[in-house]
Design a protein around this nucleic acid. Structure first.
Lengths: 155, 155
DNA sequence: AATGAAATGAGAGCGCG
DNA sequence: CGCGCTCTCATTTCATT
């Protein structure tokens, strides 16, 4: 269904999706239209979810990144789904992981200040009776920040 | 230096960087060349870090996402920097946060299996004498996964 | 069914006023 | 900044294997 050439294309696009199709073709030994057809298929099938620009958060106003671990009172699937949906709507929440272990959710958040974070916790966490407690870590530095999937293909 | 129109452009590009410049121009009330000049400036200044395709990890082989919290023995800046550099080279590590609080690092990793993860921990964590202990959480589901920065601009 | 070559069309890039 | 040009690149068509 998805062969080695597709993997090679994905490997290139997840590093730089503005790479010309002809250039991709040269690298993997295919013509530009062939590459184009494969990319279209990958998009149609949702294997390529989206195409985005990554913004340097340090160069754009003052932003604080915080990590939040959340411990729930009740862990029924309906309650989990409810929280997922609620968190998804909050723009300050970049990433939301539902996890196993001691805690139940893990969030990566970006806020303009700690004061702002404090105020947002009041409604988002303290205001939710199903959240038993939460633990906040402040990020000092980000040395790697990508969503690249390891594909193990060589160009 | 960077005005409201730039913010609006960033807001669009961080959702979809394949949006035509003319379409962006229509939305924010600018001509296509003007948009292009601004985008070029944003790229040159590194405010736009990179442009990438996001791949759906669930549709591409079997992948397990794990979160790792790391507690260090010594927390000198040289030791921190050394670890940052080491972690950055590991393709399975998507994100590496240096944090304050009880623990020192937080990693988001993507691995083909838990067996693979177990073997990678042997060299990466157990093999490092500065890592006191680490705590692993397995991700059951990801309900939000973006690197969008909240910009608070309305289109 | 998937490919490559050639033709078409859309969009990026650049100089001009 | 907008206008209009040029050129690159994406996309379609079509013949071929």
């Amino acid at each position: 269904m998805i062969d080695n050439l597709d993997y090679k294309i994905l490997e290139i696009l997840q590093k730089d999706n503005l790479t010309p199709q002809r250039e991709i073709g040269d690298k993997i030994g295919l013509s530009a239209p062939a590459v184009q057809r494969r990319i279209k298929k990958l998009r149609d099938e949702g294997i390529i979810e989206k195409d985005i620009s990554i913004i340097d958060r340090d160069k754009i106003g003052s932003n604080v990144t915080v990590l939040v671990e959340i411990f729930l009172e009740r862990k029924k699937i309906e309650e989990i789904d409810l929280l997922k949906k609620e968190f998804s709507c909050v723009p300050e929440i970049q990433q939301c992981f539902h996890i196993t272990g001691e805690s139940d959710f893990f969030l990566v958040m970006v806020v303009p200040s700690m004061t702002y974070y404090e105020s947002i916790t009041r409604t988002l966490f303290f205001g939710n009776e199903n959240i038993k407690r939460f633990r906040t870590s402040v990020v000092m530095g980000i040395s790697k920040n990508s969503l690249e999937i390891p594909l193990n293909v060589s160009l």
